[in-house]
């Protein structure tokens, strides 16, 4: 059975536009990883905002020394920190939006942000 006579020129356009919409939605939601941006702050001020897609190592100078942040495989961690208790280093890999590691002695914080800012606490 032939269907071509049922489709008018504009129908093909709508069909193509629909296909593009589906493809771009898939790209946006599936290939643009959930937590995509990394925000590094020093002393409460923005030091660097960067994508998680490109592996790199960042040195953040603080009052005690250098905090080293590593980005790899769409996640990030504090590789080394001069702080005495190493809490932010032990935090390990951060991969989802809202996760954060804070190196308080060296005044450096590392946080992953997503499209939507999710809650960090809820009260009832």
């Amino acid at each position: 059975m032939k269907y071509h006579h049922l489709l008018r020129p504009g129908d093909w356009m709508v069909l193509a536009a629909g296909g593009v919409t589906v493809a771009s939605l898939a790209l946006a939601f599936w290939f643009g990883a959930p937590g995509q941006r990394l925000v590094i702050k020093r002393g409460g001020h923005l030091f660097l905002e960067t994508s998680l897609n490109h592996p790199r190592t960042i040195d953040v100078p603080g009052p005690l020394g250098t905090t080293r942040v590593e980005i790899e495989d769409k996640r990030a961690r504090v590789l080394s920190d001069p702080g005495p208790r190493q809490l932010c280093v032990h935090q390990g890999w951060l991969s989802r939006a809202g996760q954060a590691a804070i190196c308080l002695p060296n005044q450096v914080s590392v946080e992953i942000t997503g499209r939507v800012k999710s809650y960090d606490s809820l009260n009832y």
Partner: peptide, 18 residues
């Protein structure tokens, strides 16, 4: 309101589905 000779029932159906 789209011109009917260009956009038939298929257009309307796809747009409505979206």
């Amino acid at each position: 309101r789209l011109p009917e000779q260009l956009f038939g029932a298929v257009s309307l159906s796809i747009l409505a589905a979206f």
